[in-house]
Nucleic acid binder design. Structure first.
Length: 574
RNA sequence: GGGCCCGUAGCUCAACGGUCAGAGCAGAGCGCUCAUAACGCUUUGGUUGCAGGUUCGAAUCCUGCCGGGCCUACCA
């Protein structure tokens, strides 16, 4: 039995996430976590909301709530939606937790002790009307290059030229529109990642099994231009983790907070500490995060969209490695990063601002989670960006779930009920057909497991579907409806075997389809449900006399009228 | 501008440099009648973006071109 730590990239607190966000980290992480638990491994699956930063403050201001209340409310909203999708986090934390405050301050202190923090005086734009410093992208003005009037302080969207806020003509606050701006000097802490460039490169180079998408992004940042740059880790904001050097005050940094990209990944550890505090018998968070605290045998897998790769390949490892500069704290580094491309919506991007695409709360209002889980995972953007269309969604749901799996369960249970009553019949035994099928199922299972172990989710979903298809092929060739008339014992044996297939399918499908699997097992009276090691043995579980029920339709089809209605509703027009 | 990735059947995707480039969906034909008009079998369909090169052998490696996508450090 292995010990596996799984983290999903932290969803930002600012609003409800869309299907692209879901499929890019939380959902594949959940499927993997469920699979590994089913295989008998000790799994800790961690996620949390990422709550700090300017967008959270602005979103709170827009609703008139204090930012802490806003975040607490949105955390509850996100938690309920995650539960609705069956995301089986062992803990869903908050980056604003006291545990994360302590850890973030601790890391900053350790990094400072190791000489990896620099204090830098810099000039930033301050808005007197807003009473705050403005990040570059919250300053707008006229682009000096192309004359576009709504250029942002970091880049002009029109001509794509990189800008400095002081370049802008007629600069104003994007928050209030005020032009009452001034340049103020302020002091900030920088993480001296540049000093760790070689150490980080050696570490990246040792990861020969990582996806190209992951390592190429990391190498680009390490070596592009002048190489890995130091990064500011503090901000002049109110909402965030106060700057402290460990447990001590940090002279000159009063009133400042750590910047969100520094404290967000630390919340993986913080959330584990939240979990450990809630589960005193679990042995403590160190068991998962400190090699000198019991985590030496942990395999740590991270799931994220490609936009998050630089932070997880460079900044966060720099934090963990830097905190161990004296060898006194051996932090657990990630063993494998599974990164994803983007999911598009009907050929374009999901857009929060334009209301284009499907958001997680809306998805659950339309159909149960399993429908979405299946389509998203069987079309997960592993190799390149993929595209959600209602037509593809309709086809995938109807064909795979309703026709292949759902109908299989339906035809088996209804036939048995009609011919044999509400318990499995006696008589007959395995013949050559059953033996051949067992062989095919065993090969299918081996392949499915190999794909799941390797996190090749598209391939895994294809293998799973093929395993379902084998059931329909078997019924067609065994034809118990014909055998019933000439050789009832033969039909009885076929029916018993088919019921054992339903049980097997429920177990194997559970990582993807937890609700449907539960309903299948419930129809069988909740039989033993551990992951099979030997297919033949697994298919001998339900015997004569076993009671069953005919379940409600497992998956309803989406008809054309419904699809057209949904297409129109989510086009972004309204 | 720089870097990375991609381009394979009508669609979505596979294929350690090595049997006739494979699946699913869609299309066609046949079968079955237990089932959600479901299922099964058979079948149509590709000059692997274009042009060169390396090799006994290229979808795969190299060069150029065409087309698409992503990243580019203060969004997180």
């Amino acid at each position: 039995m292995a010990r596996i730590l799984i983290t999903s990239a932290l969803p930002y607190i600012n609003g409800i996430k869309h299907l692209g966000n879901l499929v890019g980290s939380q959902l594949p992480a959940d499927v993997y976590a469920r699979y590994m638990r089913a295989r008998g491994h000790e799994v800790l699956f961690i996620c949390a909301t990422d709550e700090h930063g300017t967008p959270a403050e602005l979103a709170a201001a827009a609703t008139g709530e204090p930012v802490a209340e806003y975040c607490a409310r949105l955390w509850t909203v996100q938690k309920e939606i995650a539960d609705g999708f069956g995301l089986s986090f062992d803990h869903f934390g908050r980056s604003s937790s006291p545990q994360n405050h302590r850890l973030t301050q601790h890391f900053a202190g350790r990094l400072a002790d190791a000489g990896l923090i620099a204090e830098v005086a810099e000039k930033q734009v301050y808005s007197r009307a807003d009473g705050r410093f403005l990040p570059d992208r919250y300053i707008t003005g006229t682009c000096p290059n192309c004359g576009y009037e709504r250029a942002r302080g970091d880049q002009c969207e029109n001509c794509t030229k990189q800008l400095d806020p002081t370049d802008l003509i007629n600069p104003r606050s994007a928050i209030s529109g005020s032009t009452d701006l001034e340049i103020r000097e302020t002091k900030h802490l920088y993480l001296r990642q540049s000093l760790m460039r070689n150490k980080l490169r050696d570490w990246i180079d040792s990861k020969t099994d990582w996806p190209v998408l992951t390592t190429s992004i990391a190498r680009k940042w390490l070596d592009d231009g002048e190489g890995l740059q130091d990064r500011g880790i503090t901000r002049d904001l109110d909402w965030g983790i106060p700057v402290r050097r460990g447990t001590e005050p940090w002279p000159g940094m009063e009133g400042k907070v750590f910047y969100v990209w520094f404290d967000a990944p630390i919340e993986y550890i913080g959330a584990t500490a939240e979990w450990a505090d809630a589960h005193p018998d679990a042995g403590g968070w160190e068991r998962w995060w400190r090699e000198d605290g019991g985590a030496a045998d942990v395999r740590y897998v991270q799931f994220m969209g490609k936009d998050n790769v630089p932070f997880h390949t460079l900044s966060f490892p720099a934090t963990l490695l830097g905190a161990n500069a004296d060898g006194a704290e051996t932090w657990k580094l990630v063993d494998y990063i599974k990164s994803f491309n983007y999911l598009n919506y009907e050929g374009g991007k999901f857009s929060t601002s334009e209301g284009r695409g499907v958001f997680m709360d809306q998805a659950l209002e339309i159909l149960p989670a399993d429908y979405w889980r299946w389509w998203l995972m069987s079309n997960v953007p592993e190799g390149s960006d993929s595209n959600f269309t209602w037509e593809s969604f309709q086809a995938g749901v109807n064909k795979d779930l309703a026709d292949v799996l759902g109908n299989f369960v339906s035809r088996v249970t209804k036939f048995a009920r009609a011919r044999f009553g509400d318990t499995l019949p006696e008589g007959g035994a395995h013949g050559p057909q059953e033996l051949a099928l067992i062989g095919e199922l065993q090969r299918g299972l081996d392949s499915y497991q190999a794909m799941m172990d390797g996190m090749a989710f598209r391939r895994a979903s294809q293998d799973l579907r093929q395993i379902w298809v084998l059931g329909n092929e078997y019924l067609q060739s065994a034809a118990p409806w014909a055998a019933f008339k000439s050789d009832p014992d033969r039909a009885a044996a076929t029916v018993r075997f088919a019921f054992n297939l339903i049980r097997l399918y429920a177990i194997l499908s559970r990582p993807f389809l937890p609700e449907a699997a539960a309903r299948m097992l419930a129809a069988l009276g909740h039989p033993e449900d551990t992951w099979p090691t030997d297919v033949a043995e697994a298919l001998a579980t339900l015997g004569p006399g076993h009671r069953f029920e005919v379940p409600e339709v497992l998956f309803a089809k989406i008809d054309d009228a419904r699809r057209i209605e949904l297409e129109a509703r989510f086009s972004g027009a309204g």
